[in-house]
Design a protein around this nucleic acid. Structure first.
Length: 593
RNA sequence: GCCCUCAUAGCUCAGUGGAUAGAGCAGCGGCUUCCUAAGCCGAAGGUCGUAGGUUCGACUCCUACUGGGGGUGCCA
């Protein structure tokens, strides 16, 4: 079996056409490679003739005619047509399509022998995961599965936010405000409550001192510590210094915060079907930070400036003039840029990856451009990709943990399951109660995940319940429904003792289905290379749609035996691709719904 | 101020140099003695933010502008 026949065909047609042009005009005249690709207007199309007309000194239509002749002899090609101003449209033999159906379920191992480090999810310790965190987790998990499908060795690393100034505040809040009983019941909920309380009190102190209060972000008000800093902030800073110095009491508290948070994270990851190979949080890199800065200084990458240590960037050397990146504060402390450089070098040394993908929201674009520029100066050759996604917000504004206007991830998932259960009960009353629960879980979770995955990741998302939990159109349930219908057909036909058989003459709906199936590896490979999972969603939606048309036009159970056998084969392959494709997105299927 | 990013149908979104810009939702009209109607078929709906430019060809690339979002030396 040879993987991905459509890929192979496109390359064969392209090289056959190129060879014909080289023979006619010479290699030096071929300014661009000849490319064939799938098209809505033909099975396969070439639009290169129009680009070559000038360099070959011939009319595009003439070039197209040469290209058409060059590929006409390929065994897959049934018919070629030239259309103005210079397109070549290719119709493939039904027999070729049918013969390669099974190969289309196998991906090309384009990542074989290569390692990818994939950094995603990365929630902050001591804060509950809310729906703003879901995109990194869902996108990253899908990428992990897709990259593995095309042969990469993937290191899925949860770069936990387990270090930083918020722990000074948390320790102070713990000593001042903790309700032990509430903590016993819901540790992370209580940590959130005391953190919010701390923020409120701090705001009040600031207001009393006449210091401006910034209310629009989460954790960034500790930079300058002026003379009139609030008492609470001074205290938090002192506790942070003690923690960093290894004070046993503070270290024990910090570890406890991590432990109770991890229990909660693990529960959610399990529910989401998400797993990691490594959980190396920021704190893991703590003892590498001094050496990291020393190395940056020694190589001349970083330099002292105003008491701090910074990396400067210039357009000539780094491609863009950017504001400097601080790697050591004037007080000797380190920053997240420092630990990211340390993480980068650690990952390169430990895994020697060909690609490093970091999935975070759009706010960190500048930071990662700086980080990647530093990495290039350090001689790191891995392809570095910041897989950024648009921020999720509520209609009334951005989420803020501090202000408490968040929708918890668990509340979202609960609501999704409830809505899915209600729909399942009303649309399919015959579904046994025991099955309704599972259908609700799979469909509810699926629609939440698919909602995030089906849009281009850079799209800014305004959260509303109805959009997030939509069950119609380009959604998980639409694709899952197609799968369930196939399983239903298979159950019914099995009762008649019919089995799948070879494909016979293809009706239009059947042909469209086969052609779509052959494009499956194209979609998966594109997701792997461009880190855009919505391409796979679009593909699965198209496949499910092609099946829905087939379902309407082409009866299976009551067809002639040979036709029925052929359609059973088609059904089986469609079901396989739907199931595997959804699995790559981290979404399950059900046998009936 | 500077930098990044986004703008496509009433709404939510595909379309990363090719033909007449495509889906879903909402609204309109059809389809069920037949394998699940969470479905199918059809009609309608667009000066692709504005103005220039590059190109045989621009929603796509470049420039400026407008509007939304984000970032911007001691948070992450």
């Amino acid at each position: 079996m040879s993987a991905a026949p459509m890929h192979a065909l496109l390359e064969e047609l392209g090289s056959a056409a190129s060879a014909a042009l080289v023979k006619e005009f010479g290699a030096e005249k071929l300014s661009v490679p000849v490319v064939f690709e799938p098209s809505p207007r033909a099975d396969v199309q070439c639009a290169t003739a129009m680009r070559l007309g000038k360099s070959l000194g011939r009319a595009p239509l003439d070039v197209a005619a040469l290209l058409a002749d060059a590929v006409a002899a390929h065994p897959a090609v049934a018919k070629t047509e030239v259309a103005k101003p210079g397109f070549v449209n290719v119709t493939l033999h039904d027999a070729w399509l049918a013969a390669h159906l099974d190969d289309a379920l196998v991906h090309r191992p384009v990542g074989a022998g290569q390692t990818v480090v994939l950094d995603y999810s990365s929630p902050n310790v001591a804060k509950p995961m809310h729906i703003g965190h879901i995109r990194s987790t869902i996108l990253g998990e899908a990428m992990k599965r897709v990259l593995r499908a095309v042969g990469y060795t993937v290191v899925a690393d949860n770069h936990l936010g387990d270090w930083g100034t918020q722990f000074g505040k948390l320790i102070v809040a713990w000593r001042r405000y903790l309700d032990a009983a509430a903590y016993a019941r819901d540790p992370v909920g209580e940590l959130l409550r005391i953190y919010v309380k701390f923020s409120d009190e701090e705001k009040a102190q600031k207001a009393a001192l006449g210091v401006p209060v910034r209310s629009d972000d989460d954790d960034n008000d500790d930079a300058p510590l002026p003379a009139q800093a609030p008492e609470l902030l001074r205290e938090a800073r002192a506790e942070l210094v003690k923690l960093q110095a290894g004070d046993p009491e503070n270290v024990a508290l910090w570890k406890q915060f991590i432990d109770v948070s991890m229990i909660e994270f693990e529960r959610i990851y399990k529910r989401l079907g998400v797993s990691f190979d490594e959980v190396l949080g920021e704190s893991f890199y703590n003892d590498r930070l001094p050496g990291t800065v020393d190395a940056l200084l020694a190589t001349g990458t970083a330099e002292p400036s105003q008491g701090a240590v910074v990396v400067n960037f210039t357009k000539e050397r780094d491609g863009a003039a950017m504001t400097p990146m601080l790697v050591r504060k004037a007080d000797g402390g380190f920053l997240y840029g420092t630990s990211d450089v340390a993480a980068m070098t650690y990952r390169v040394e430990r895994w020697n990856p060909s690609r490093i993908l970091i999935v975070t929201d759009e706010r960190q674009q500048l930071h990662f451009r700086q980080l990647f520029a530093v990495a290039r100066r350090l001689g790191i050759e891995a392809k570095l990709e910041h897989v950024w996604f648009g921020l999720m917000r509520l209609p009334e504004g951005t989420f803020s943990t501090r202000d408490g206007n968040v929708i918890s991830l668990e509340a979202l998932l609960d609501e999704a399951e409830e809505r899915a259960a209600a729909v399942a009960r009303s649309l399919n009353p015959e579904l046994p109660d025991a099955e309704v629960a599972n259908v609700a879980r799979v469909v509810g979770l699926g629609s939440v995940k698919y909602n995030d995955l089906s849009k281009d990741r850079q799209t800014l998302v305004t959260f509303t319940w109805d959009k997030a939990l939509s069950l119609q159109g380009n959604t998980a349930p639409y694709v899952q429904y197609a799968y369930a219908r196939i399983r239903s057909i298979q159950r019914k036909v099995a009762e008649l003792g019919a089995v799948p058989g070879p494909l016979v003459a293809l009706e239009p709906a059947e042909r469209a289905l086969v052609l779509t199936l052959l494009k499956y590896p194209l979609a998966v490979e594109e997701v792997a290379m461009s880190a855009r999972p919505h391409v796979l969603c679009d593909y699965l939606f198209a496949l499910a749609g092609a099946f829905a048309t087939f379902f309407n036009d082409c009866p299976v159970k009551d067809a002639e035996p040979a036709v029925r056998a052929a359609r059973l084969t088609l059904c089986d392959r469609v079901a396989t691709v739907l199931r595997r494709g959804l699995d790559l997105l981290g979404i399950e299927v059900v046998e009936r719904m």
